[in-house]
Simulated assay, not measured.
Amino acid sequence: MFETPFTVVGTIITDPIRRRVGDQEVYKFRVASNSRRRTAEGQWEPGNSLYVGVNCWGSKLVKGVGASLGKGDPVIVVGYVYTSEYDDRGGVRRSSLEVRATAVGPDLSRCIATIDRPKATGAGSGDAADTQDDASEGGEAGEADEVADGKALPLSA
């Protein structure tokens, strides 16, 4: 099956809804991606807008998005785009652009986020990030770190 990869940067504009479909869960919300451009006078004016429905499937993605993001949050969504067709209440045939998300995260150019990494369940998980986290715990901010609200933020994260 041919799927079209898609990335959108925007803002969540609806309250996310978590639903159960059969034995799976889905988390749905809409994203608006608004462009703007600079006029000849140097002022910013609004440009075109793109509205897309986002469907998050899979327990890990549903859990992460549900615990982290909500209406008004700036996000980056990666997934596969498709057109959903339906009949509205008046019987008129409509279509909407939707994304089946494979990854969703906060847009760090427009917000600050805290990463909550689950602890490894087995000894010696072999993950380099775990080793780096263990080495940096309890230490002060180094040259490769920034400090925000009294917390050291590694630039490599």
Rank of each mutant, 00 (worst) to 15 (best):
residue 68 S to V: 06
residue 82 Y to V: 02
residue 123 A to D: 15
residue 113 A to V: 04
residue 146 E to T: 03
residue 87 D to E: 15
residue 157 A to E: 15
residue 153 L to S: 01
residue 137 E to S: 04
residue 5 P to R: 01
residue 1 M to H: 01
residue 26 V to Q: 12
residue 26 V to G: 08
residue 130 D to V: 00
residue 35 S to N: 06
residue 55 N to T: 07
residue 133 D to V: 00
residue 65 V to S: 09
residue 101 A to N: 01
residue 108 L to D: 12
residue 9 V to L: 11
residue 135 A to W: 13
residue 51 Y to C: 03
residue 45 E to N: 07
residue 24 Q to T: 07
residue 2 F to H: 08
residue 139 G to I: 05
residue 98 E to V: 03
residue 68 S to W: 10
residue 153 L to M: 08
residue 48 N to G: 05
residue 80 Y to I: 05
residue 126 G to T: 08
residue 150 G to K: 03
residue 122 G to D: 13
residue 77 V to G: 02
residue 66 G to V: 06
residue 143 E to L: 11
residue 31 V to C: 00
residue 147 V to G: 07
residue 84 S to V: 02
residue 65 V to D: 13
residue 4 T to P: 03
residue 61 L to R: 07
residue 150 G to Q: 08
residue 85 E to K: 15
residue 85 E to P: 06
residue 142 G to V: 06
residue 42 G to S: 09
residue 22 G to M: 04
residue 2 F to S: 08
residue 4 T to R: 12
residue 35 S to V: 03
residue 138 G to R: 08
residue 75 V to T: 04
residue 132 Q to S: 09
residue 89 R to C: 03
residue 10 G to F: 07
residue 15 D to L: 06
residue 45 E to C: 07
residue 108 L to H: 11
residue 43 Q to S: 12
residue 18 R to N: 01
residue 107 D to Y: 11
residue 99 V to P: 03
residue 144 A to H: 15
residue 6 F to V: 00
residue 35 S to Y: 00
residue 8 V to C: 12
residue 109 S to C: 01
residue 30 R to H: 09
residue 39 T to K: 04
residue 106 P to H: 04
residue 105 G to W: 10
residue 48 N to H: 08
